[in-house]
Amino acid sequence: MESTFLNKGGILLIILYKKGGIAFESELINITKFSPGTIQSWKERLKEKGYIEVTKDKNKVYIKLTKKGKEIAERLITLETRIETIVEEK
Rank of each mutant, 00 (worst) to 15 (best):
K68V: 06
E48K: 14
M1V: 07
E2T: 01
I15E: 11
R45G: 00
E88L: 04
K64G: 01
K64Y: 01
G50D: 09
T85Q: 05
K68L: 12
Y51Q: 07
L28M: 10
L79T: 10
I14N: 02
E80I: 05
K90W: 05
E84I: 03
Q40H: 14
E25Q: 13
D57L: 15
V54Q: 05
K19M: 15
K68D: 09
D57A: 12
G10P: 06
E80K: 10
K43E: 12
S3P: 01
G37T: 09
K64E: 14
L13Q: 00
E80W: 06
K49P: 00
E25F: 04
I29W: 05
S26Y: 02
E53W: 06
E53F: 10
T32L: 06
V54D: 04
G20V: 07
K70G: 15
L16V: 04
E89C: 01
E2Q: 01
T4D: 11
I29Y: 05
K33V: 03
N59M: 13
E44G: 03
I31Y: 04
T32D: 08
I29E: 12
I39N: 04
E53K: 15
L16P: 03
K43H: 01
I14E: 09
G10M: 06
L6R: 10
Y17F: 15
E25I: 03
L46F: 11
I72H: 00
I52G: 09
K90P: 00
E84H: 05
L16G: 02
G50T: 09
G9N: 02
L65H: 06
E84D: 11
L28N: 11
N7P: 04
N7V: 03
L76P: 10
K70Y: 02
E84N: 14
I14M: 14
E53A: 08
L65A: 10
E27K: 10
W42F: 15
T55F: 08
